[in-house]
Design a protein around this nucleic acid. Structure first.
Lengths: 258, 258
DNA sequence: ATTCAGTTTCCACAATGTGGAAACTTGTGT
DNA sequence: ACACAAGTTTCCACATTGTGGAAACTGAAT
């Protein structure tokens, strides 16, 4: 065997399958999708159910994720202090600009949303914590790429994930991406104008830790009707001030890179 | 074997260990806590790392939960249509009373916090989503028990989990519990005065779905210095109005129980 | 240089996980 | 009422995978 524990891989693949499904799934569907015999899938699910990670509706025999998963949180995602330090600043920022504020990190060439403080006017669907999004067409992603040495992300963002188009404004060539990142580096913050296909505008800044490395990004976002182009400079300044406050909490000193 | 997949149990036990830890853990600690040989623990962790559920800090060799966990967490929360419907109402309620608002469900005789909207004055640590708490000494728990037929919870709450004491005010006898639940049923909402040992006061109401069943509860909570006894009737009315709004979204019609 | 504690790799072995077959359950069509 | 189909659950012989002790490796402390 290759070094991995096959049963663990299989069990987690089933959890991810259920996580991605919009509806509850039965054994046959799960077996088929995960390319397992029904009896094997059944045993995995029985174990996951026993532990609370999966629940089965007794009437329909179908499975869904269990609430036990919500307990899996402790030291925040490899960055122990990030969320704790960021939260108070995020709240102040939201109060100040009255739009939704997100915190995200870069992981394998994509952004992952870590925290969120919603604007009080926000309605409808909101970004789920844990959601991933492409780095090249989000303000959060672009700003982290702009302030991170290229060799640390090029392979994953450009070669592996690719610069996929999501809307008419998505960046899809390397030249366009590098030019945009240079602009962002000079400006200090990034903007995305619906590049993921959503009718939102986001303004994002970088968060550095004590070594000077970019460890996260913060954004202000809202519908394009609220976050108008005219507000961008003001929001840019606000998000940069918040990023600096968080960075200082993490021990960052501008001009003192290690 | 008993029917469970041992390796899956072990892997998830390790995830829970990391989830409960406030700091990163090394192989020896993990092996010791999970009663596994280091080599076995190492192989589990290698598999979990490969899949993104665990991350290892290369400098310290210590492990913590990985971002893949957040995706599953997000999926669980997203699946609960409850959360989507509740959120806007929770925000309005928080705006109105300016205290923290929680949403919780009952799961295996305990409450699980599902959503939270923090009061703008809130400082310091806050209740983690996914956290569990005993049902008998939380306003959220008591109100769900009061409006749920006893046979659906008695075994788990009273027999399995037990009426443990957490403070001088905790209910620890069945008679006292039933009397309290009857009071709550008549009043329509529950209050807890630091019964879990925390210096907070909570006021909670029940949320019903289209079948009339209690599916969740909503609470307003804050320090006892802010949520004074004099405010309880006002807060009770506010939380009940919010619960009704959410219940109606879920198809509930008072007096039309199925 | 040596020691120690923790981490990682190796590998012989046996216990666990596998998956096909069978049994069971439920819904549908006649 | 019966037959059939599809999906779920259980059983069990078997072999592959997971196990865990030993050894090797790593880095820090002395």
């Amino acid at each position: 065997m290759s070094g991995s524990v096959q049963s663990v891989e299989r069990a987690l693949a089933i959890l991810e399958l259920l996580g991605n499904a919009d509806i509850h799934l039965g054994i046959s569907e799960i077996a088929q999708s995960s390319k397992l015999p029904p009896s094997t899938a059944h045993r995995m699910l029985a174990t996951l159910m026993e532990l609370g990670y999966v629940e089965q509706n007794p009437e329909t025999s179908k499975y869904t994720l269990g609430v036990r998963i919500l307990q899996l949180r402790g030291a925040v995602i490899g960055h122990l202090t990030l969320g704790v330090h960021a939260m108070p600043v995020m709240k102040l920022l939201m109060n100040r600009v009255n739009e939704t504020v997100h915190l995200a990190i870069l992981n394998k060439g994509e952004i992952v949303y870590i925290e969120r403080v919603e604007g009080l006017k926000t309605q409808g669907m909101y970004t789920r914590i844990g959601k991933r999004a492409p780095a090249h067409c989000t303000a959060l992603g672009k700003v982290m790429l702009a302030f991170t040495p290229q060799h640390l992300w090029y392979e994953q963002v450009v070669r592996r994930n690719g610069l996929k188009r999501f809307s008419a404004t998505t960046i899809t060539t390397e030249d366009a991406l590098f030019a945009e990142l240079q602009r962002i580096y000079k400006l200090g913050y990034a903007v995305d104008n619906g590049e993921t296909g959503e009718a939102v505008r986001c303004v994002a800044g970088p968060i550095h830790d004590y070594t000077g490395s970019v460890v996260a990004a913060l954004s202000i976002s809202g519908p394009q009707t609220q976050v108008t182009p005219g507000r961008v400079p003001e929001l840019g300044a606000a998000v940069l001030a918040a990023c600096q406050a968080i960075s200082e909490k993490l021990g960052y000193k501008a001009g003192h890179e290690l």
